[in-house]
Design a protein around this nucleic acid. Structure first.
Lengths: 200, 200
DNA sequence: GCGTAAAACCGATCAGCGATCGGAAATCGA
DNA sequence: TCGATTTCCGATCGCTGATCGGTTTTACGC
């Protein structure tokens, strides 16, 4: 049992605490809002004092950045798990449904990932790369349906993001807007099929 | 020239200062972001000290509330000035273009009116009534085209808000998404005409 | 025009925030 | 068990919005 792991127990312990802090941060964000996270409150949740958090995150923005990366990793995992076979239109629909479901399931996460709401926060290049990968996944699926114009992707993100945005701004916790996702997809697909020419 | 105004010079002076503060607040919001407004900076802009602002606004949220009301008054003025005669579809298009134009013309305003971005801020009932009037104006124009379902309005606001939102979040200062407003209107009108039955 | 009540203004101060410093305490490889 | 490294935290800094009390300014009613 001893030296079960030859390598650093220190690093493992460090990483574990970091994840405990992140979990507590998400919980606080869901309770009090993203901007409502206070480092003193957060530290108390993991039985630390506020200065100790700086052993794990260089700043509050650095904490937000780690949450940003976690959020996109979760979305990427869900979208990448979708099969890439069969009707391309149905794949676009499935992706949209997964997207809206994940957004309403954790609005704090959606707010962090898709709105520029935290004053002065910008994701690091490494975290932004995850966001780009997420967009690439969307583009790949639109391409498969022959929707290859830049405008096709932009309109898609605008419609889906618009539904989620209205939902969060006007009826948080409800589903009045996100329930329109299928109708919105009817609208988008029909329009874009015409624009993009016949089905490949 | 004396007693040119029989009524309160006090109230007039008070209102004038209030508007000077609001103008400075908008300027600061455009420069540093909505949440970046510091009451000490704001006071300095109008040659006051920070506590003096509380003679005009009960709190920072009260200031935001006044800005919220001003913003909707400006949007309402623009939309209500649109003629209510002629092709109802063209009126819907005109309203959407005015909306996106005003949003990109002052993104701080759009952020305040259409995103829940300030931690803890909620408009007062009086200010929210202006927002409702704005939505009523939209509903009236959709009704005129036979788009009377609740979903018709919700989808319309989602699409237009989605374009603006993507624009602000991903390319502030640009026009990549709002330039799609005409194509988005093609998409929306064609879809909703089918859904809503034949033109009245 | 003048007296006076009301309004406006501000220095000082409060509690809260994120961030920083330096030293004590705990950890763990050797 | 030793010793370097990491972790932890009390104290403190500068900033924020808000509040208090007292001074100064304003302009209404006489």
């Amino acid at each position: 049992m001893t030296n079960e792991q030859v390598t650093d127990r220190r690093a493992a312990r460090h990483q574990a605490t970091k994840e405990r802090i992140l979990d507590a941060a998400w919980a606080l964000a869901r309770e009090q809002g993203l901007a409502g996270i206070s480092l003193r409150d957060l530290a108390a949740r993991v039985d630390l004092r506020q200065p100790s958090l700086y052993s794990y995150f260089a700043s509050k923005h650095d904490l937000y950045d780690a949450m940003f990366a976690q959020g996109y990793e979760q979305l990427l995992a869900s979208v990448e798990s979708l099969e890439l076979v069969g009707d391309p239109y149905e794949q676009i629909r499935a992706m949209a449904r997964v997207f809206t479901d994940l957004c309403v399931a954790d609005m704090a996460r959606a707010q962090l990932l898709f709105q520029r709401t935290l004053p002065g926060f910008e994701p690091s290049p490494e975290s932004y790369a995850l966001a780009s990968r997420f967009l690439d996944e969307a583009k790949r699926r639109l391409d498969a349906a022959g929707f290859t114009r830049d405008e096709d992707l932009d309109l898609y993100t605008a419609v889906m993001g618009g539904l989620v945005n209205q939902q969060m701004a006007n009826e948080p916790g409800g589903s009045r807007w996100v329930d329109l996702v299928d109708e919105a997809l009817d609208m988008y697909l029909e329009h874009t099929m015409k624009k993009g020419g016949p089905t490949p």
